[in-house]
Amino acid sequence: MKNLKNLDKMTNEGVDNCSVEERRHFLKMGLTVTGVFAGGTILSAVSSVNKVYASTSGFVEKYPYKPHYSMIMHIENCIDCEKCKSACAETNGVPSYGFRTNILERQVAGALDQQREFIPVLCNHCNLAQCTRVCPTKATYKDPNNGIVMMNIEKCIGCLSCQLGCPYNARYFNEEKWAVDKCTFCWESRLSKGAKTTGCSEACPAGVRIFGDLSNPSDRVYKEVHQMTKTVWVLRPQAGTKPNVFYTRG
């Protein structure tokens, strides 16, 4: 029913579409796109396509926000040039001792094609964010409109529980602001001023970081998440936070 409700809000894609029931059925399949754990075996380094639909834990169940900001990473394109990191630091005034986004490296000796891959990470703007749950003063909170995990630095007491609650190491204490700092999908610096994408996404020369609206069927992120031919996963799905940053290859 939740999906059906969502459908009602969607714009009509055309009269030649299939029936609502069929669309709903398809959507449900898409919605249960599952999180194969991005890591571990050599198999998943070489190819994790064809082994993804084992789990039924749908991490996308509903879209409580409009727009529901999200990002999908095409990690096979990532070359760790770190232009995203520089752009992020420049756009958001991130000091050299901290970062809002980072690139991880995974080396797989013995893989036949290439022996390394890079994994960009940033705040996953989780639907069940633990950082906002543990914050004693609501200094960090989910924006009720777009789901971005925001900081109200005036309220931050610096207990750093949010840093421990975050399964993605997305937070750090900013000594200049006297508050925890984190990725806000460039809300203050860009989105709120009318920009359509984040600084990191714009700076990426390889098209790794695709930013968009997960609740908009005509959006690229929506299309890439709601399909079954290509593997889509999230990092650390067992942490149970229902993240909004997705990963794919190809």
């Binding site: 914050c135 003063t137 609501k138 309220k155 007491i157």
Partner: peptide
Amino acid sequence: EIKVPIRMLVYNIISPNFTSNIWWMG
């Protein structure tokens, strides 16, 4: 250990988060 203890005294009272264990603990 708390980085900004002054804010703690104020916002623990005027902006409590009831899902936070650390708030309840305090």
